[in-house]
Structures are given as structure tokens and as C-alpha cells.
Design a protein around this nucleic acid. Structure first.
Length: 579
RNA sequence: GCGCCUGUAGCUCAACGGAUAGAGCAAUGGCCUCCGGAGCCAUGAAUAGGAGUUCAAUUCUCCUCAGGCGCGCCA
């Protein structure tokens, strides 16, 4: 028994009286408020206008058709149809749950691929704490979609082309040359962080003066590659020398990909922006020559008459697709813009067979969303292919003062430090708890001080003490009866609440797979943990004399362990059996 | 100026358009012969302001106020 089956049965039962009525047949059950039964239907309110009757009268009629065997009682409370479920229902539901365990919350494969891209920070500096929010959101959205039956590919897009990378390389070059007594002007808008100097020092130590007499262009190329390698870490580079470098490296903070792994984030794929520049040059127009993979987009736009030249640059007619201005795709210098590589990248996602691409971006990239959707329309894929999850800025406070961070001034708080201090689980839970579209104030002092008080410990503690009951039962050789006799006993409200929540979880996950509101997972987890702790405090399990009641409660313990364990897996936090 | 996000208890945050707006922290007062007290119970306290749509608005629409973020031939 699961929520879909129950909803279907209700839907079918109502199809007879509502034969001639146009209504939403996929209506959902609601969890009823306390003292109003287990679940409720608000369908009569929706039908009131069409049927020209009061909700209360409609419910009176409908209830006559709802004599399902699972229902113990039906009531009409001001138009709401409130359902109290019978023991047969709980027996079937829990049998299935205990049998399938966490698979109870995994849907059948849909044969649909979805790609989730997140973090994708420039490899010009280590990840800072702010990146943590996107990392957790992307990771957990992926997990939820997997549980809904999608085939999910998690990807990191490395922006390793363009001006920022040049500035980065120039900044390293400055320090490298300085190590050999050559003092230059520090590049304007260069990266000022300590780590830049440390990269230069590491390179000096390993490669000595090898790059000293390279020409400027060659130096930039080398520092770009090596610097990126040090910061990003081992993605899928095949260059032997880089692997050796990796081995010799004594750098004092983890690379981007290592930080993410410490954070529990594992990617299926790392995509390099620079790969879009590979291949031969293609002539799209007489005076427009561009790498092959980028040229494809331009050719399609040209065919559709959406590309034009102005002031020496090539423009996309974005205004035809609700953007507020047209967008440059190829600069007057002949270089592609970030917008062009990004649309080429998204076309690539489409060609890889994904039915949808989900990007997780910081809210400061908001302005890019409409342009990307316009381009997707422009190339004929359609704007709906892309969903962008925007998460609002995180403000960090330390000693009561806001921590200002910028890769350019070099002041930042590395994500790896945060993980080390408060732990992976607490950090993930903390980031996850707030809705993505609300600003998040992250008080670092509080996070440190709080480590033992953190809600994540509360839920993990709940799991551990439940697990202890199971262990204790084995140790003491406590006897239990069979499933059927356990559910001859009445189920009391506290137990119902917990069972009902577990039963309803699939429905919540379905919602999250549509609106990506992953903060509802920690919220749900805290709610059910509270109910479970109340149960734990007020009801004995092993010490209960009545073997039927004892068995029923033990089933509740097992069901709770299954659901908590599954939720922890979704959120990427540990299932600790002992703390 | 235009666009987007936010405004809920002293603080940090919840609430598919649904019934009595919920938690945590902080405050006050209780609960350990017990399967883990890192827990449980009780008390006080809130929808920025104003119109509108709806049987029903914290949620949707409009206006005002306040905070944040965007509006590059940057990425």
C-alpha cells in the first residue's frame, strides 16, 4: 500500500458520482489536522461552484461512495472529508515498508535523463563557504530526482576559458617572476589572494626556472593550466606531467574537487569550457571564423535569421524572445563571449539526450537566465529545457561583523575550513534548511559554538537511540508476535502521526522534484524526529508487557529507522548507529 | 529607472491557495528506579502597511515602505 494506490482508489470510487463533472482527477490527499482523522479531501470546495451546492452538501453525497475497506471512519467537517484509516490499512502499508525498506521511497525508472549542473566555480581560487549552498542544493536535488526514477547526471562545468583565466595566470606569473628577482606591475584586477603566491611558490619549487624564459603567451598558457590543475584537482586530465605535479604538491588547502568530496559531493562528469574551443576553425560568414563546436550554434541562428553584425560584433536577436536587449555572441575582437560558450554547452547537454537541464546558480547570475532561455528558443530546443535554481546570497558573520569576501581582494573563507570545523553533516544540514530563495545569514561563531546543539545532531541522535532499541531487543532476546496480531491492537494518535508522515513522504518528494524546494527535506526530518522522540519518551517498547502492543511499537521503531535512514541518504548525512 | 528575491514570535527560519500560522535558539517552570536526559512536557510572544481576487490569502494581483541582488563586446 502506498499513497498513489490510495489516491487512485479514492479517485475511482468518486468517478461514479462525478461522472459528468469536470474536475482534477489527480487531486491529492492532505494530512488532516489533529483530531480530524488521518487524511482529508478538500475536493468538495473545488466542486462547489460548478455544482452550485455547498461543500458540505457535496461531501455528504460523496461520502456515500467512499466505503473503501481501508477506511475506519469518514466524517464531513464543514466540507472537508476527513478519513480515519483502519488497521488493515496500516498493516498492509507497514508490511510493504518493512519489506522494501528504503526502496519503498524509490520509484520505478522513468527512462528519462536529467542533468544537474552545480557549483561550477571558476578555477581561479579555492571554493569559499558561499559555494557550499549551491553544492548541497544541487546534490540533494539530484538525489531527489533519482528517487523519482530519473537517470541523473551530476556535472561540474569548469569555466577555464576567457578573461578571468588570463587574469588568474597573469597573477601567478607576477609572483613566479618575482621569485627570480623580476618585479612587474601587478595586473590590474588581478587575483590578490595569498594562495596565488603559494601556487607560484609551489611551481617555482617544482619547476625551478623552467618557465622563466618562455615568451609571455607561453607563460600565460602554462600558468593557466598548472594553476587550474592545482586549484581544481584531478578531474580527468591525462597529462602525465600534471599527475607528477599532483604527487609532489604540498599545498595547504584541498582542491575544489577534493573540497566537494569532503562535502559529500561526487560528480558524474566534469565538463571543461575549454573543450568547446577544440577542433578546427569553421567559417560561418565571410568574416566570422570560429571553433567548430561554437560554430554550430551560430550556423543555426544564422539560418533562422537571428544573427547580425553591428559595430564589428555578432549579435543574437534576443529581444525576439523576451530578453530586454540583444546579446553579443562574438566580440569585435573575434573572441566568443561567455554567452556563446554557455549556449553551446547547453546545446551539448541536449544532444547528450537529457530531457531537462537543471542549473544551480547564485542569484547574482539572475540576469543570465532570460538570455539563456531566449537562446534555447532561438536554436529550437525551447526554453523549458532549462530550469535554473537560483539561491540567494549567503552572508557570513564572524565576531558579530559581516565577513567580506572577494576572490579579487583575496579575502575568503574556504569551504574546506567550514567542513573541518563544524563537520560535513552539520554544514550540509545548515545550508539545506533554508529555502533557496531566502537570504541566508550564516553566523560562523554560532555554527562553531553550536556544533553540539545543531539540529543535525538531534536527528542523528534520534536515529541512534532507535537503533539502540533494536540492538537491545536482540541482546535481551525479547520476543515479538507476528505482524497480523500486532495490528489487532488499536493504533493510538501518536503512532498514527508517525505512520502517516512516513506514508506521505512520497508525495512530498514528488512535489520537490517539481519545485526543487529541497529545504523541505530537513524540515520534514526534524518534524518526524520530534514526533519519534515524543513517542520514545512516553512509550515503552521492549518493556511493554502486552506482546501485541510491544510488537506494534517495535514495528514503529523499525519503520522510523527506515525513513530516517532514507532521509539521511537523501541529504547526504551519516546514519550513525552510535554517537 | 527597469527586473528578480525577501519582509512571519526577541533572534534564525517553516507553513502544494485550505481547518486553530508551526519549530529551534533565548526566557520561565516542571520531568531521570526506565530501550541513550544530546531527550520530553508546559507557559508567554508574530504574518511590514493598504486595496483587490476567492467559499478560503502568510501564499495570488496591484500600490506603498524597507533590505538584498542584477541590468557589460565580464564570467
Amino acid at each position: 500500500m502506498n499513497i498513489y494506490k490510495l489516491q487512485n482508489e479514492i479517485s475511482e470510487a468518486l468517478s461514479e458520482p462525478l461522472k459528468y463533472v469536470d474536475y482534477d482527477k489527480n487531486f491529492k490527499l492532505l494530512i488532516a489536522p489533529e483530531n480530524f482523522g488521518d487524511f482529508s479531501l478538500n475536493i468538495s470546495f473545488k466542486l462547489a461552484k460548478a455544482l452550485k451546492k455547498s461543500p458540505k452538501d457535496i461531501s455528504d453525497e460523496l461520502i456515500k461512495y467512499l466505503n473503501l475497506p481501508y477506511f475506519e471512519n469518514l466524517s464531513n467537517d464543514g466540507g472537508y472529508i476527513n478519513i480515519k484509516l483502519g488497521n488493515t490499512f496500516y498493516k498492509e502499508f507497514l508490511k510493504e515498508l518493512l519489506d522494501k525498506k528504503s526502496k519503498y521511497f524509490i520509484k520505478e525508472p522513468l527512462d528519462k535523463k536529467i542533468q544537474v549542473e552545480f557549483v561550477s566555480a571558476n578555477p581561479t581560487g579555492p571554493l569559499h563557504v558561499g559555494n557550499g549552498r549551491g553544492a548541497v542544493i544541487g546534490d540533494v536535488v539530484s538525489n531527489v530526482l533519482k528517487s523519482r526514477g530519473y537517470e541523473v547526471e551530476k556535472e561540474y562545468y569548469v569555466n577555464d576559458a576567457g578573461n578571468k583565466m588570463d587574469l588568474f595566470a597573469q597573477s601567478i606569473r607576477y609572483w613566479y617572476l618575482k621569485n627570480f628577482g623580476k618585479e612587474l606591475e601587478f595586473p590590474e584586477e588581478g587575483y590578490a589572494g595569498d594562495y596565488i603566491k603559494r601556487i607560484a611558490d609551489v611551481l617555482t619549487e617544482i619547476f625551478k626556472d623552467r618557465f622563466l624564459h618562455y615568451d609571455y603567451k607561453k607563460q600565460i598558457e602554462v600558468f593557466k593550466i598548472l594553476g587550474e590543475y592545482i586549484l581544481l584537482g584531478d578531474a580527468n586530465s591525462n597529462i602525465e606531467e600534471l599527475k607528477t605535479l599532483r604527487k609532489n604538491l604540498k599545498f595547504d588547502f584541498p582542491s575544489i574537487l577534493e573540497s566537494l568530496r569532503l562535502f559529500g559531493v561526487y560528480y558524474d562528469n566534469v565538463f571543461f569550457e575549454s573543450s568547446l574551443y577544440e577542433g578546427k576553425l569553421v567559417k560561418v560568414e565571410e568574416d566570422l571564423e570560429i571553433p567548430e563546436r561554437l560554430s554550430q550554434v551560430l550556423s543555426v541562428l544564422k539560418e533562422r535569421n537571428l544573427l547580425y553584425k553591428k559595430d564589428g560584433a555578432w549579435w543574437f536577436k534576443a529581444t525576439q524572445f523576451k530578453d530586454d536587449k540583444d546579446r553579443v555572441l562574438v566580440k569585435a575582437t573575434g573572441e566568443p563571449t561567455y554567452t556563446l560558450t554557455d549556449i553551446a554547452y547547453h546545446v551539448d547537454k541536449f544532444k547528450r539526450g537529457h530531457s531537462k537541464a537543471i542549473d544551480v546558480w547564485g542569484a547574482d547570475h539572475f540576469g543570465h537566465v532570460i538570455t539563456m532561455k531566449a537562446l534555447l528558443e532561438g536554436v529550437g530546443i525551447g526554453g523549458d529545457f532549462l530550469d535554473v535554481i537560483l539561491y540567494q546570497i549567503v552572508h557570513f558573520f564572524e565576531n558579530g561583523v559581516e565577513v567580506m569576501m572577494s576572490k579579487h581582494t583575496g579575502k575568503f573563507y574556504p569551504l574546506s575550513d567550514l567542513i573541518e570545523k563544524v563537520g560535513k553533516d552539520a554544514a550540509r544540514f545548515f545550508f539545506l534548511m533554508k529555502s533557496a530563495d531566502t537570504h541566508l545569514n550564516f553566523d560562523i561563531d554560532l555554527a562553531l559554538k553550536q556544533s553540539f546543539d545543531n539540529p543535525v545532531f538531534y536527528v542523528q541522535y534520534t536515529y541512534a537511540r532507535l537503533h539502540n532499541i533494536v540492538e537491545e531487543a536482540k541482546k535481551r532476546g525479547v520476543e515479538f508476535l507476528d505482524f497480523d496480531s500486532a495490528f489487532n491492537e488499536p493504533i493510538d494518535p501518536v503512532e498514527r502521526r508517525i505512520f502517516n508522515s512516513i506514508f506521505y513522504l512520497n508525495s512530498i518528494l514528488d512535489d520537490i522534484s517539481l519545485d526543487y524546494a529541497v529545504h523541505r527535506i530537513p524540515t520534514f526530518t526534524l518534524d518526524i524526529a520530534r514526533d519519534i522522540n515524543f513517542f520514545y519518551q512516553n512509550y515503552r517498547v521492549l518493556g511493554e508487557e502486552n506482546p501485541k502492543v510491544r510488537t506494534k511499537r517495535f514495528i514503529l521503531v523499525k519503520a522510523s529507522l527506515i525513513v530516517l535512514g532514507f532521509l539521511f541518504d537523501l541529504m547526504g548525512i551519516e546514519k550513525k548507529e552510535h554517537m
